[in-house]
């Protein structure tokens, strides 16, 4: 072996020493750990440098799904436009199948009046309410008052 080394072979030796140093860095269980990782299922393996994906979208997606599901199961009722509501217009909105099977189908205020007037007892109770309102000059906003009146009916 030459006793005189060229500068570049000296650097080359230094580089090899650095490489040896780096290779010696992992502990003795390094190879065993790699052997175990190779046989692990894909989901358990580490992915180098990859950021963990955020799961913040999950609650929003779940809420959107529930909303979509609810809108499919319980369709929105047709709303009566109060500006256009005339005496002929009644709460005929529910075109849902159950309403068609109902005994009563309210189609106008006149019909409602007819029905109410035909029931003497009910009409009497309504009159009681009206007279009570007239007497007390109240808007019946108090919930307890409604409860009292309901019980009286």
């Amino acid at each position: 072996m030459n006793s005189k080394q060229s500068p570049q072979s000296h650097i080359s030796d230094q580089l090899n020493r650095l490489a040896m140093h780096d290779r010696s860095e992992p502990d003795d269980g390094f190879e065993r750990m790699i052997g175990q990782t190779m046989r692990q299922p894909a989901a358990c393996r580490p992915v180098p440098g990859r950021r963990r994906r955020s799961a913040a979208w999950v609650p929003f997606a779940a809420a959107a799904f529930v909303g979509l599901f609810a809108s499919m199961v319980w369709p929105t009722s047709q709303m009566v436009d109060s500006d256009q509501m005339g005496s002929e217009l009644m709460a005929s909105a529910p075109s849902i199948p159950d309403a068609q099977d109902a005994d009563l189908l309210l189609v106008s205020f006149e019909t409602l009046d007819t029905i109410l007037n035909s029931d003497e007892a009910f009409a009497a109770d309504l009159q009681t309410i009206e007279s009570y309102m007239d007497a007390t000059d109240t808007d019946l906003l108090d919930i307890s008052l409604w409860m009292d009146l309901g019980e009286s009916l």
């Binding site: 390094f30 750990m33 790699i34 990782t37 393996r45 580490p46 992915v47």
Partner: peptide, 9 residues
């Protein structure tokens, strides 16, 4: 270390 594991996988 992670890269080494990933390569062998």
């Amino acid at each position: 270390e992670e890269v080494s594991q990933s390569v062998f996988v």
